[in-house]
Design a protein around this nucleic acid. Structure first.
Length: 432
RNA sequence: GUGGCCGUAGCUCAGUCGGUUAGAGCGCCAGGUUGUGGCCCUGGAGGUCGGGGGUUCAAUUCCCCUCGGUCACCCCA
């Protein structure tokens, strides 16, 4: 009758050590802290300020913001309701960020808002490598700037984050999707081109011809790739202003010495992108390849109720995929915070002393640990070693009566006797 | 949602062509050192062989179902 519980499929626990009870290798909480902090540092240098929004939002916001017809909205939302209100767990963070921008009238603060976010998102997909039902994204939104430098800067901060981890196997792809006329027109052109060739297409491609003809373009079937060569090109359907903007973005990227590949078939999955679209790929993500994706979405604010157009550009990136890339390139992440001092106590009086002293030293800035099971000295020493303690303070009956304790350097095994009232000063050098 | 593969100790796995008390390494606990870690030696704890049903004298081993994991498709971070 007694049965323990398990985390929901597609979710995972982040433990102090880098493994889960089910054998799944998930990075340790220390690794997460390290990665998150590094991201925050870079964001701070670029002067992006954090925005935190709730993990659930009204269904309507997400449906409008992400697009009713996208897979995300049509089949991947976790939804629930109370009374007449329908809610969803957020599947991404751009729509919530724009919602907050409009709700709090951030435009009235003047200038351009440069925001970043980091937190969990939820999609009801079947989990696989690099894809989870609760996953974590970070990203930026530059709101209120149509300048091509804004596009380029979001790419720059993104690249800087990955570069700061020492990642090398990165491929940056960019494209322009044109204005709101462009995609439908291009889609029609593709359908007209492939329709007569339908009999030569694979089943999946024939299905895509109806639903999402753009995806035929990145088919892996060789015979179809031949057909794709003759297909219409998106670039020919783009309006002049978008084309100019695209050229400007590319120029700025070159100025920043960011290398990229132009991919005329790159289309982002979400409905709201216009003009610039980009994607950062890594070969270490299993069947997935996208580390981060972004672009411009000048129409989104209006879609979410703004009376005027508000230009915006940004990217979203997956933390789990970042970890996969780091593992794939052999980047070492730090272990848990080490212990400065471990107090080994023998006897009731010494245990009492250790308990009280540990607390004092901790408030003085030391990382202090001690045994909570009243175990043997040997067991405590072993525990100290496991903690990676750099020093051990040994206290027993003798030490308390003589007013001196033993300080042991764990690395060398050197020991010395130190008066109890000098201990803290003696130990401080551990933390510089 | 569909499909492939997998499911034996905390972890990584071996094993049983169906047959007495299911193994190893690592980890954990303890002893070797009655007050001292890491190395070494010795011992110990820990498994309803994912769960349910079936076939059989007998199932962890064969069959069915189910649950879980994983990878892939679709799509995406």
């Amino acid at each position: 009758m007694s049965k323990t519980f398990q985390n929901i499929s597609g979710t995972f626990d982040i433990l102090p050590d880098a493994f889960n009870a089910d054998g799944t290798v998930i990075e340790s909480s220390a690794s997460w802290h390290f990665v998150e902090e590094r991201i925050r540092e870079v964001m701070a240098h670029y002067r992006y300020l954090e925005i935190r929004t709730p993990v659930f939002e009204p269904t309507e916001l997400i449906a409008r913001g992400v697009g009713e017809l996208t897979d995300i909205v049509s089949k991947e939302l976790f939804s629930f309701e109370r009374g007449d209100t329908h809610y969803v767990l957020r599947p991404e963070l751009t729509a919530p960020a724009i919602r907050a921008y409009l709700q709090h009238h951030l435009a009235q603060k003047g200038g351009v808002q440069k925001l970043f976010y980091m937190g969990p998102c939820f999609r009801a997909e079947k989990p696989q490598k690099g894809r989870y039902r609760q996953f974590h994204q970070f990203g930026v939104e530059v709101i209120g700037a149509s300048d091509a430098r804004a596009d380029a800067e979001t790419v720059a901060v993104m690249m800087q984050i990955y570069a700061s981890f020492g990642l090398k196997d990165l491929v940056l792809k960019i494209n322009s999707l044109g204005d709101e006329q462009t995609r439908p027109a291009f889609k029609n052109a593709l359908q007209e081109y492939f329709e007569p060739l339908a009999s030569e297409l694979s089943d999946t491609s024939r299905r895509r011809l109806k639903t999402n003809p753009l995806r035929i373009l990145d088919t892996k079937v060789e015979r179809e790739q031949e057909l794709v060569k003759g297909a219409p090109r998106l670039i020919d359907y783009i309006d002049d202003a978008s084309r100019e903007h695209y050229e400007a973005v590319k120029g700025h990227l070159s100025d920043l010495e960011i290398s990229y590949t132009e991919d005329p078939f790159l289309v982002r999955g979400l409905d709201y992108y216009t003009r610039t679209a980009y994607e950062l790929d890594s070969p270490h993500l299993g069947a997935q390849s996208t580390l981060a994706g972004g672009g411009r979405y000048d129409l989104l604010a209006q879609e979410l109720g703004s009376s005027e157009a508000i230009p915006a550009v940004g990217f979203a990136a997956g933390l789990e995929r970042l970890f996969l890339a780091l593992a794939g390139e052999g980047v070492k992440l730090p272990d848990a915070v080490k212990t400065d001092v471990y107090i080994v106590a023998q006897g009731e009086a010494a245990e009492k002393w250790a308990f009280k002293t540990a607390n004092e030293w901790r408030s003085s800035g030391l990382h202090v640990a001690f045994d909570l099971q009243g175990r043997s000295m040997k067991a405590q020493m072993r525990d100290a070693n496991r903690h990676g303690a750099s020093k051990v303070v040994i206290v027993g009956e003798d030490e308390l009566t003589s007013g001196k304790a033993i300080v042991r350097e764990m690395e060398t095994g050197d020991q010395e006797t130190v008066p109890l009232h000098d201990l803290l000063d003696r130990l401080r050098d551990v933390v510089r």
